[in-house]
């Protein structure tokens, strides 16, 4: 639902392939989505936005202090901070679990997308496209409502709580994006790599494991990190399907305080939490991309 770095499925649309500018290759910086996050993600810009947050919070609090004797908004935010921190912990936990599951499934699916078997290749492609083009929220609903709340395996009942279903729901789009990155990374390697491994007598599996996959790691790292940031920013969606996290706690806090003047500061505060967590990841992604871009 958000824009992760992605390698378009059509090889002609891959970054660097720019029909318009092909004869001027030397100028044609690839315009992959990943490379465009750049100039404005400087640390300075991050501090600038953060300062804007704090100023708006301060302004809201000042306006409040001028108006009455009630507890100031800053004090109120501080009061609810432990709960929000706990909620954000859930967001982080959900994001890490979804990322882990989605990455493993996505790598497998991506490898299947370059399978020599045409049927496997097509099925893997179809699965990837289906999950990539479905809204995240719909996939979440799908898992929440259609996965049974417990599964019986060999007589033992494994409970399936809502948050676990949500983790699975979020891992599906991650899988699809990862599958696309994987395929793109494998196909971006020069065919000479396959040929030379072939001539040395490696089997296809060996070539994949020992030659191709290690080389894709470097290419996959920046989009993978970007995908993680995108996933983290998607975690508040689970509050819609009834799983606790920072947003649901924040709304509970707002309901119990029932103060109109707290609305803007509270939502800004939640935005702030995500910004502080996600912005450094974006910055790091950019730096890695730049470094790799120079080397390769």
């Amino acid at each position: 639902m958000y824009l992760p770095l992605k390698l378009p499925q059509n090889p002609e649309q891959r970054p660097g392939y720019m029909p318009v500018l092909l004869p001027m290759k030397s100028h044609a910086a690839p315009v992959g989505v990943g490379t465009m996050v750049q100039s404005f993600l400087s640390t300075k810009m991050g501090l600038f936005v953060l300062a804007a947050f704090l100023i708006s919070l301060g302004a809201a609090s000042y306006a409040q202090a001028a108006s009455g004797a009630q507890l100031g908004t800053i004090a109120l935010l501080w009061k609810w901070t432990p709960l929000l921190a706990k909620g954000f912990g859930f967001n982080v936990l959900i994001s890490i679990l979804s990322m882990a599951i989605g990455t493993v499934l996505g790598v497998c699916l991506g490898i299947l997308q370059v399978s020599p078997n045409g049927i496997i290749r097509r099925v893997a492609w179809l699965v990837t496209q289906f999950f990539r083009n479905s809204p995240w929220l719909v996939l979440l609903f799908y898992c929440i409502l259609l996965i049974p709340f417990e599964i019986e395996v060999f007589g033992t009942t494994i409970p399936f709580p809502g948050w676990l279903k949500a983790v699975i729901g979020l891992s599906l789009p991650v899988m699809a994006y990862m599958s696309e990155y994987m395929r793109g990374a494998i196909q971006s390697l020069p065919s000479g790599q396959w040929e030379s491994a072939d001539s040395l007598g490696f089997s296809r599996g060996q070539t994949m494991r020992m030659v191709i996959l290690p080389q894709t790691v470097k290419r996959l790292l920046p989009p993978w990190m970007n995908l993680y940031a995108v996933l983290t920013m998607a975690t508040p969606l689970v509050s819609i399907v009834g799983v606790d996290e920072i947003m649901s706690f924040a709304r509970a806090a707002l309901a119990s305080e029932n103060r109109v003047d707290l609305l803007i500061p509270m939502y800004l505060y939640v935005l702030c939490w995500f910004f502080i967590y996600c912005f450094p990841i974006s910055g790091l992604t950019r730096r890695l991309e730049n470094r790799f871009a120079v080397k390769s």
Binding site: M1, Y2, V37, S39, F40, L41, M45, G46, F48, V49, A52, A229, T232, M233, A234, T235, P236, L237, S239, I240, M247, I264, Y267, L268, V270, L271, F274, F275, C278, F279, S282
Partner: peptide, 21 residues
């Protein structure tokens, strides 16, 4: 700087929270 701030803000916060805000 303002445009950069706008882009940075919207790119690094969850769209759902933006919508709620």
């Amino acid at each position: 700087a303002l445009v950069g701030g706008f882009v940075t803000f919207f790119r690094n916060t969850p769209p759902l929270v933006q919508l709620y805000f």
